[in-house]
Write a protein that binds this DNA or RNA. Sequence first.
DNA 1: CCTATACTGAACCAGATGGTTCAGTATCAA
DNA 2: TTGATACTGAACCATCTGGTTCAGTATAGG
Lengths: 113, 113
Amino acid sequence: MVQYQDRLDRALAAISDPTRRSVLERLAGGPASISELADPFDISLTGMKKHVAVLEEAELVSTEKVGRVRMCRLGPRGLDEAQEWIEAHGRAMAARLDRLGTLLENDDQGEQR
Amino acid sequence: MVQYQDRLDRALAAISDPTRRSVLERLAGGPASISELADPFDISLTGMKKHVAVLEEAELVSTEKVGRVRMCRLGPRGLDEAQEWIEAHGRAMAARLDRLGTLLENDDQGEQR
DNA sequence: CCTATACTGAACCAGATGGTTCAGTATCAA
DNA sequence: TTGATACTGAACCATCTGGTTCAGTATAGG
């Protein structure tokens, strides 16, 4: 019963790492090999491959082996679900906070419906 | 030099857990105690307190002890930064994918810059 | 054919995460 | 004052995470 959220879980966890966010930003500029992705960071090839694997499992990135090079590009699915959740609930949270802001320092218990 | 991203890291990691997302959704409806938050889940009080602590460190939730009850409410900062990153880069990624989509099955190598 | 390149897989590591139980402490209510 | 309630902190646990090194394998190029 948690499984249908799995992709959202993975996507959010994937982008919670700054290295992986940088990788996504880099790939937004076009495909790149593992080596090219690893280059700007103080990280081993193996380490970068792991990051790419995480992004791939979150379906944010797709890869393809071409000769001895693994080309990485943005996946077709992208951050849609993550964006949807944040927009829907971020909006609700902000709205709630706005109302709270006007009522605060006054009555907290009354908020509990 | 990574530290200014720390809040974003924490916020995204915090909402990558489905239990914590549910807690945020619950709190969008008004403040709640730890017990009330734990109730819908098969989790101990201690377990829920840990989740709340994570949300608090991400500055998504603030808490206040009132008598023997710890009241939890949405924090003032919210998901702004997370939303900004996803919107900015999600948009860029989607745009890139659109262009790729029109060019694909044709020439991949030419995309590299 | 030989060598350098680009990745891959296995093994390992320290620290974080998500959960537990158990033994408190503090407070509300009777 | 006594008991139930609501949390808290410590200790423990299994698994995941982000990283490493080392020893391959496969391919591009000369």
